[in-house]
Structures are given as C-alpha cells and as structure tokens.
Design a protein around this nucleic acid. Structure first.
Lengths: 237, 237
DNA sequence: ACCTGAACACCGTTCAAGT
DNA sequence: ACCTGAACACCGTTCAAGT
C-alpha cells in the first residue's frame, strides 16, 4: 500500500539519522515536524513545500498525493519504534517481557508525537486485520512470532494481538487527547476555545472536577496493562 | 462549546422524529446521512447545501462554520443514546446493569454510524476530562451519579469512568475500522485500494491470515467487558 | 533531472444585494 | 426573514515549460 516499502522483508532498514531515500525521507520528516508544531489540519502541500523552501508542486516528485504523504508521515513515526533500544523485535526474556516493552515503547512514541498519534490511530490500514497502533506488517509478524514461539496456539496469539491493540489504542488515544492535543484533525487558532465548560446543572461534575482533572494516565496505563497481562496469562500455554 | 445547547440542564430534549430547532436539526441530520453515505472527508459545505437543495452560503445562517457543523453532527449522533430504550440515564438495577446497558448502547450507536463514529472518537471535547466516546457533560454526570449513588467513592467513580471510556474507545474504534469504515477522514474512490497486502516475507501472517480475518468482535467485546466488570467489582463498595 | 508558473476545479467564508 | 451571486483567499493536482 505504501509505495515507500519496496523491500517488505522482516528485516527493517532501521530508522535513524542516516539519509537513505534522501529526498522523500526529508519531506516526510518535515511533515512530522510540521504536524507536531501546527497540527495535521494545517498541513498543506503548499505550506509544507514552503517549509522546505520549495514550491508545493515539487513535492509531487516524491509523494503521489497529500493522502499518501500522510500515510508516509505515519509510517515514519512508527518506524521510530525500531530505533527504541528498549523494544525488541525478537523476544529475549519471554513473551511477557516482549509485550511490556512493546506497550511502553508505543506509549513513548505516542507521547513523543501527540499530534501525529491520532493519525496513527485513525488512518486506514494496509489490511483490515492490521490494527492500530501496531500498524505495520512487520510488527504484527513480530508480535505473532513472539507469542507462538512462546507456545501460544495460533488462536491464542491472535486473541492476544487483538486484546493488546484495543487496550493500547484506547489508552493512548485518550492520553494524547488529554495532553491538549486535538485528536484527529487539528485547528490552530481555535474558534471555539476549550474554555472550561459551564457546569451549571451538573452538581457531580462540579464536585468531582478536581479529581476528574487529575492526571493519572501513567499509573492507569500501568495498572490496566498489568491487568491485561494477567488476563493473557490465562491464554498462555 | 456547542452553540446548539442553550439549556445545559441534565434534562435532555430527547432526540427523535419531532422537529424542534427546525432548520438546524435538519441540516445536522442531513450531515449525518451524508457522512454515513460518503464519508466525512467528502462532506463539504457546498455539497451538503446541494444535498439540501440550497446554496452552501445558506447553511451559515444555522451553523457558524464547517467545524461546528461537524461538532453538531457528532452531538446529533450521541444524542440518539437518549432514544435507546435499553439504556437508562438513571440506574434501575444497580451499577453493573447500568454500565452494561450503556456499553451496549454505545456499541449499537457505533455500529449504526460507523462513518461518524471516528469523529465521535476523535473530535476535541468540551472539556479535557470529557472522554470519548461518552462525550457529553450530561452523560458523564449520569455516569458518575450512577456509581456514587451505588456507594462508590469519588475516586473510585472517576477511576471507573476512565477505565470504561478507554475500554469502549479502543474496542469500538477498532470495530468500526474493521467494518471497512475508513476511520477518521475518509476517501470515496480510494486511490490506494486496500488490496490484500503482499505477505511475502511474513510467513506467520500468511499462516494466520484466516484466523486474523475472522470477525470475533462481538464475542471479544462481551469478554473484555466482562473482564472490565470483574475488575471494577474490586473498586465497588 | 529537478523545479516552477500558470492553470483548473474545487474549497470555506464574507457580504452586499436580491426576494 | 431568508437565500444568493459574486468575490476573496486559499486548496490539491496537472502539465507544459523552464533551467
């Protein structure tokens, strides 16, 4: 689907400060930066061009359309996962360790790219069973390999994959949304500023507002992840 | 935030086939229908106008901008929850029953509006602690009231609210995405059709493709919901 | 080989003008 | 009171033309 993936073998060309695909990668990186600064809604071929010191039309030599530019931006961000030394493509200390590292790596990615993450979560995927946020064939293969090689049945591995992606998607999308990131398309100078809502008529909301506003996302992530792991133990061999 | 909510008291003016706010509501309903048919990306002031037999400029008498039109469309859809006879605003048979009914009602809503649901999931909310998919002050108030009136502490009620929304968001967003709905912005005639991906080099994906493509969303929803309920029992009084 | 100017068909939005 | 025509500043995208 992504025309940027000519060699789909499981061995990644690791993302990093090298510069292969010289121009395309520069454009995609500029796209990531632009979105992180101004939000996805602001990203325009013309504006990205001018951020690169070039006319919009030049981008079409490297990217067939704005849509595929966004796909490439998403891909660029998830490819960072390969650069995370804490995340293993091959399990080293069992499947629990593998899953915990992967979950934390994806959370770091989401928090590093709060404006891009909603795109990671919501762009159409390569195949219907590629479930965000783990949206790459390579990672899905890695995931399933880690589980089946630990003795999970095929069914159990797939069930684990689904439970894991649901959990991560819900948590991370809500966490970046709470970061003040506009989730999904983003406005710059917001026409309807998120002024603290009018709570007249909602006594409980008034009473619980402080509790509701507390940021417990890190703890909740850990607790829910632990709970998920407990649940998954039941599927383990 | 939504200019369509002049009386924010907890008593809803129930959604239904009546026609209060005559014109605005007609526009929003047309917007819902349009998105469900063509996807949110296709929704244009001009096109929606012509679907209503009117010029785009006329819409601005009822809706201040395209952004707020989208907000209104999302609101229209979640307001349908009030019309669901299986969902109670006030708990009648305890908090477990309340939560189960609410969860199933939201799932029905997502499946009824697979193209709108990604907007429900990703549009900026009225306040940072309003967490999709339960994106209305009225419902958050209802939720917290149901729990505290069942004896939950304030903290436990808030923790439950958070766990519940994460769970629903992850599950439902992935479920509508799998429905073939493009999640988030949508393309009509897709330039990169979701042709079945090239699985060369991914032996496990090939081997598990049938399992991966099986639709088990209903069962998984029930199982995960049950697990969540078990977890929440620990917070109950 | 790479970039651009001009052009096309479309946007959202404003506002004076029509009825 | 409600709708519209014309206009403005912007889009994505194509393509022949420049260097």
């Amino acid at each position: 689907m992504l025309e940027s993936n000519p060699s789909p073998g499981p061995e990644p060309d690791r993302a990093g400060p090298e510069k292969p695909r010289l121009e395309r990668q520069r454009i995609l990186q500029a796209g990531v930066d632009f979105i992180e600064q101004h939000g996805a809604r602001q990203l325009t071929m013309r504006r990205l061009g001018s951020a690169l010191g070039v006319e919009a039309m030049s981008l079409y030599r490297y990217v067939p359309s704005r849509e595929s530019l966004l796909d490439g931006i998403v891909e660029t961000v998830i490819d960072e996962l390969y650069g995370d030394p804490e995340v293993y493509v091959e399990p080293r200390h069992g499947w629990q360790d593998y899953l915990l590292r992967l979950a934390h790596g994806l959370r770091r990615l989401a928090l590093k790219h709060p404006q891009v993450f909603p795109l990671v979560a919501t762009r159409p995927t390569e195949a219907p069973w590629v479930r965000p946020p783990l949206r790459s064939l390579r990672w899905v293969e890695s995931f399933l390999a880690a589980l089946t090689s630990s003795g999970f049945s095929d069914r159990a591995a797939v069930a684990t994959y689904r439970a894991f992606s649901s959990f991560l998607l819900g948590h991370l999308l809500l966490e970046v949304a709470a970061l003040g990131a506009d989730v999904g398309p983003v406005e710059e100078a917001d026409p309807h500023p998120p002024a603290s809502a009018d709570l007249d008529g909602y006594p409980l909301l008034q009473q619980l507002q402080d509790l509701l506003s507390e940021d417990r996302s890190a703890q909740e992530f850990e607790e829910s992840l632990e709970n998920l792991m407990d649940r998954l133990e039941a599927l383990a061999p």
